[in-house]
């Protein structure tokens, strides 16, 4: 067997898990298990206000295009580390079948990032409350408080948390001055561009996509574009069976 990146495997593991569970419950043929309806977010009572969400229309996502990733990594000073062991990613593209399970018909690469779950298991594992869910639904990291115990990284079922095993500045060629880097010894992940949202801008991946394949908006607002898309099309989430309630959706 080829040597795999662990995180890549975690992403793939959803498929195996689903196959196992599907076999046991007979749900695999039924198909409804992984498909998300608007009930996935709207049916939770007492949840109002802002909850940022993202939707990828992978039909419009060109093969081989990585503009969103490049833009994200440049804006947030994500170091470019070649080795799989020390790699840091906020966003990446993976085989859709492996990422989203067997309901995803296509094996084309689709973008993936932190799901900003409504029930984040990373936040439940963090001993210092350094990774937490904000009132606007963004799962944020307080880099000033993180002690680097990597519990969040261990407990994220999507493998979307990265750790700075070495000094990130050494691997940063052309930093963006407006956004800080991280230091060796803390974890990091996608922040849903909360730094840009506060200035009234859209996330940098959304802006960078030439095809307009990424929608971003308030999941709790019935009139938002993302809700309109969610209600009009069939969407998938990553590993919804874990009960983490991701805020990132995919149209295949």
């Amino acid at each position: 067997m080829m040597k795999n990146d662990r995180r890549e495997f975690i992403r793939k593991a959803g498929m195996g898990l689903l196959a196992g569970m599907g076999a046991a419950s007979g749900l695999l043929t039924g198909g409804g298990f992984e498909r998300t309806t608007s009930a996935a977010w709207a049916a939770v009572p007492g949840e109002e206000g802002l909850r940022w969400g993202m939707l990828f229309d992978t039909r419009r996502c060109p093969e081989g295009c990585t503009l969103c990733i490049e833009s994200c990594h440049h804006t947030h000073n994500v170091p470019d580390i070649a080795s799989l062991e020390g790699k840091i990613e906020w966003m990446h593209k993976e085989n859709g079948r492996e990422l989203l399970g067997s309901l995803c018909a296509s094996t084309a690469a689709v973008p993936a990032l932190c799901n900003h779950c409504a029930e984040p298991s990373c936040a439940r594992a963090c001993p210092t409350g350094s990774i937490f869910r904000r009132t606007d639904g963004i799962v944020a990291i307080d880099y000033h408080r993180c002690v680097g115990c990597r519990s969040c990284m261990q407990s994220c079922p999507y493998g979307e948390v990265s750790f700075n095993w070495s000094d990130p500045r050494a691997a940063l060629k052309n930093p963006t001055v407006e956004y800080p880097t991280r230091q060796r010894g803390v974890v990091e992940k996608c922040n849903f561009c909360s730094d840009r949202l506060v200035r009234g801008k859209k996330p940098s991946c959304v802006e960078a996509c030439p095809e307009g394949a990424i929608s971003f908006g308030n999941l709790n607002d019935p009139s938002s574009e993302i809700r309109r898309l969610l209600e009009s099309s069939e969407t998938l989430q990553r590993k919804p069976e874990l009960g983490t309630r991701p805020s990132v959706f995919y149209i295949i």
Partner: peptide, 11 residues
């Protein structure tokens, strides 16, 4: 600022 910025987010 350092202690509150991340936790209060946009607030």
């Amino acid at each position: 600022w350092k202690n509150t910025a991340a936790h209060e987010g946009p607030d």
